[in-house]
Design a protein around this nucleic acid. Structure first.
Length: 733
DNA sequence: AAAAAAT
């Protein structure tokens, strides 16, 4: 059963049209409100009758037809899944879109008015099947009265009975979903009982653990108790504060034992791990000192081959690691001066594309573009490193399109043709942004692009694929999803680009990326770009690249950057106020936080303080993410508080101040966050707030990043704060 | 911790 997809579609439809309440019937509407979680408008959609014999047959037909309907692919704009509150919107949206339903003789005979609503039900084969059996059981029992008696066992005597009596009438009358409600209520009741039981179990469990503990970690306990008291830091972690259910901690209880065993090893590692300072709550724990010892991880981590802790042992890792990689790959450096007078045409880019580039504001190539475009056009695999804001998108986008066109691309417009190029990015926003640059270039020569990323209904994306596209731009998850659904075939992809390539090789990204690359054509060209390209990409290079050409731009060190870096050592309690004072300015300000919750909280605080601020993080649905970012771009808000979702690649004109409310863990993260300002040679300021305990670690990070930054103590009201806020005038445009 | 699929 294709249900899953369909169900998604329904939801979307719901959102679409909030629909008028009470359509199904007045009675239903009035009752529905009484039902938990049901909106009056929604009730009309679900009906008992539907799952009657007639409906069943209809259902069976409906699903299949749906799956085949191309029309679905055309659905214009479904709001993100997250946005869909409830089913109310369902029926409506589907109605308008379902022309096919009209064709169904059965349904037509059924109930015209109801038709619109049925489809929703019909689509849910599972539900129908489900509800039926259960209902029957329930009905029989209820009819006999046994059902009620049973309910009590569930913990709820009243509701089930009540609902049952009403249901029949509802069903007959109209499409009401009372049945569902009842079921759900039943389920809820059961679940609540289960939860209660689980809670009890947990409470009991912890006790047990406590009893047991003394023996194991006897030594550790005293310390822990202190830790808890000391945790004032928690204020920064709103989420944690809310946790009343410490009962869940059993896990913590167990830890002591573990760390205890491991300690000997960790003690050696300690020096390197100052990092813990970032975890305010944890820092305060005296016990942690022990924990540090126990961390054997370092050695292990470095072994992973990840770039995560590249330099620690070596120190100025950035260059060293890169140099190693680059040496092996025969890196070539291009001097900015070499590019003077060179045009895109000189590099081999055709007239149409050159014109579009000019329209995009790229009159003449930047150094990284001049360095890599010829190599890409030669068909070589390329590793390109250019610092943030140096024009990497065009560096791979323009030659990519040029090559597709050379290979007869423009002439091939057969519907359903397979894509021939793939661009992967780590975030949806970045994928969207890349498309905004690449699409016009592609269109200039008659090629089509489409975005494939999650958080939005897949129908439109699938529709585009069916019509035929040449260039896919997207994020790993949805691309894999569509491949598995056999709606996306990458076997003709001859050029693959990994933007932010080093990040795409981080844990969590690497494997999906590898799987996707394996779906592309053997021997296809691979282009890896990032501002912090390092040995972390070695795994991919070894598997997928052949004799790659490595390029970077000489003289692109941080010293020559247009970014002014500052580090403020602040008291934890002063942080909010200091951020507020820094953000008290006209220009666009981007604030980074480590967690989504803190980002949300900061944004709210700033809004409450009267600043036009919004947030960007993974807890928002995609439409919100897109909208909130757009609000900063358009200037509707001047402050955006984001997680690292905005750290890489995102380009917003004229961000002249970046505030790191939480310092990053990685020097590369620092570089990317900082790179949201000072783009294309403009001036920018980066202010990083750290607690006193983090100074040393921050020094090390800055050293790895090769950044010179002044580190000073700061308190609310300091003149410095006002200077930093005002210091960076918005660049005239 | 965050990001990346969907439900």
């Amino acid at each position: 059963m294709p249900k899953s997809n369909k169900s998604g579609g329904f939801k979307a439809a719901k959102n679409y049209e909030p629909r008028t309440p009470g359509k199904g019937g007045p009675k239903a509407g009035s009752r529905s409100p009484s039902h938990r979680g049901f909106k009056p408008a929604d009730e009309s959609a679900p009906r008992k009758q539907r799952w009657n014999a007639d409906e069943r047959s209809a259902r069976g037909a409906a699903p299949s037809s749906r799956g085949e309907r191309p029309s679905y692919g055309d659905r214009p704009e479904r709001p993100a899944y997250g946005d869909r509150p409830e089913r109310g919107g369902y029926n409506r949206g589907e109605r308008s879109e379902r022309p096919a339903y009209g064709d169904r003789p059965e349904r037509g005979g059924y109930n015209r008015g109801e038709r619109s609503e049925r489809p929703a039900y019909g689509d849910r084969p599972e539900r129908g099947g489900y509800s039926r059996p259960s209902r029957e059981n329930g009905f029989n029992k209820s009819g006999t009265g046994t059902g009620r008696s049973e309910r009590p066992s569930y913990g709820r005597d009243e509701r089930p009975a009540y609902n049952r009596d009403e249901r029949p009438s509802y069903d007959r009358d109209e499409r009401r979903v009372p049945q569902r409600t009842d079921r759900q209520k039943w389920n809820d009741a059961r679940n609540e009982e289960r939860r209660a039981e689980a809670a009890k179990a947990r409470e009991d469990a912890p006790k047990r653990t406590w009893e047991e503990r003394p023996k194991r970690s006897f030594d550790d306990r005293p310390k822990r108790s202190f830790d808890r008291d000391d945790r004032p830091a928690r204020t920064e972690r709103p989420a944690y504060n809310d946790r009343p259910a410490r009962t869940e901690r059993p896990a913590y209880n167990d830890r002591p034992a573990r760390s205890f065993d491991d300690r000997p090893k960790r003690s050696f590692d300690r020096d390197d791990r100052p990092a813990r300072t970032e975890r305010p709550a944890y820092n305060d724990r005296p016990a942690r000192s022990f924990d540090r010892d126990s961390r054997p991880a370092r050695a292990d981590r470095s072994d992973r081959g990840s770039d995560f802790y590249p330099n620690r042992d070596n120190k100025p890792a950035f260059n060293q690691v890169d140099d190693v990689v680059l040496e092996r790959l025969e890196a070539q450096a291009t001097l900015a001066g070499d590019v003077d007078g060179v045009t895109f045409a000189d590099l081999g880019i055709g007239g149409n594309i050159t014109r579009v580039l000019a329209e995009l504001g790229a009159e003449s190539p930047f150094p990284i573009q001049a360095a890599t475009i010829p190599m890409v056009l030669e068909g070589r695999d390329v590793l390109g490193r250019g610092r943030t804001g140096s024009g990497k998108t065009i560096a791979f986008g323009a030659p990519l399109v040029e090559r597709l066109m050379e290979n007869g691309g423009g002439a091939n417009r057969k519907p359903g043709r397979k894509p021939r190029a793939l661009i992967l990015a780590p975030t949806r926003e970045l994928a969207l942004q890349i498309d905004r640059t690449v699409q016009p270039i592609a269109r200039a020569v008659g090629l089509f692009t489409t975005q494939i990323y999650g958080g939005v209904p897949q129908a439109r994306q699938v529709g585009a694929l069916q019509r035929g596209v040449d260039i896919i731009i997207g994020t790993p998850g949805r691309i894999e999803d569509l491949i598995e659904q056999r709606r996306l075939d990458l076997s003709d992809v001859t050029i693959t680009v990994l933007d932010e390539a080093d990040h795409m090789c981080d844990l969590g990204f690497l494997e999906p990326v590898q799987r996707i690359l394996r779906h592309t054509k053997d021997g296809g060209q691979k282009l890896l770009f990032s501002a912090t390209l390092d040995k972390g990409v070695a795994t991919l290079v070894e598997e997928f690249l052949v004799n790659p050409s490595v390029h970077e731009v000489a003289g692109e060190d941080q010293a020559s950057s247009t970014i002014d870096h500052r580090v403020l050592v602040v008291e934890s309690r002063d942080k909010s106020e200091i951020i507020r004072q820094l953000a008290d300015r006209e220009g666009k300000t981007l604030i980074f936080s480590r967690t989504r919750a803190y980002a949300e909280m900061l944004a709210e605080q700033l809004e409450d303080a009267g600043f036009p601020a919004t947030s960007l993080h993974g807890d928002l649905n995609q439409s919100r993410r897109t909208r909130n970012l757009q609000q900063l771009t358009s200037g509707r808000v001047s402050v955006l508080v984001a997680t690292d979702v905005a750290a890489r690649g995102i380009h917003v004109d004229d961000i002249d101040l970046v505030i790191q409310a939480d310092a990053p863990d990685e020097y590369k993260t620092y570089l990317h966050r900082a790179g949201r300002t000072g783009r294309a040679g403009k001036k920018g300021t980066v202010v990083t707030l750290i607690p006193r305990a983090r100074r040393r670690r921050m020094d090390e990070l800055l050293e790895r990043a090769e950044i010179q930054a002044e580190m000073v103590d700061a308190f609310p009201g300091d003149a410095l704060l006002g200077e930093l806020a005002a210091d960076t005038p918005v660049a005239p445009r």
